[in-house]
């Protein structure tokens, strides 16, 4: 008996369909378009930076910083999907990479939070500049 498309044989079947997926990889012309789009996004990023006029102390700052972060994520996803072929390759590759990425984001967001990165103590001067750990504000 030969098992097809069942149980763990799915992996083999999925691999076999990889060839078909490769046939759907972007053409060189499409790669040019993706590259052009990435270049334009980079141009927009730099333009946004100069419009935002650091140190970002005006009312539009949150919107502009949000735009910069959005464009960063967009470039990341486009490069991953098209240049690294994650959109076309076997899902296992994508899952392995995304697992590492999510683990990194989760761990280091926790680290940043643990160091009270999200407080405003940098601005109000209640942290000890020479110490690694942030001190509590003095009583009274």
């Amino acid at each position: 008996m030969t098992v097809t498309h069942e149980g763990t044989a799915d992996a083999g079947y999925e691999a076999a369909t990889d060839e078909a997926r490769h046939e759907h990889h972007p053409s060189d012309a499409q790669y040019w378009k993706v590259g052009l789009a990435l270049g334009l996004i980079t141009l927009l990023e730099v333009g946004t930076y100069f419009i935002a006029d650091p140190p970002y102390d005006h009312e539009l700052a949150p919107l502009l910083i949000g735009s910069l972060i959005f464009m960063m994520v967009l470039k990341f996803v486009v490069i991953g999907a098209y240049f690294m072929h994650l959109k076309f390759d076997n899902r296992l590759f994508r899952n392995v990479f995304v697992a590492g990425l999510l683990l990194a984001v989760g761990v280091y967001l926790a680290v940043l939070t643990a160091f009270e990165f999200w407080t405003d103590r940098y601005e109000d001067g209640t942290y000890d500049q020479d110490s690694f750990l942030v001190e509590d504000a003095p009583a009274g």
Binding site: M1, T2, V3, T4, E6, G7, A9, G12, Y13, A16
Partner: peptide, 11 residues
């Protein structure tokens, strides 16, 4: 379900 030994066997 018998596990296919190789992708070639599976497909």
């Amino acid at each position: 379900t018998r596990v296919a030994a190789t992708p070639t066997e599976a497909t």
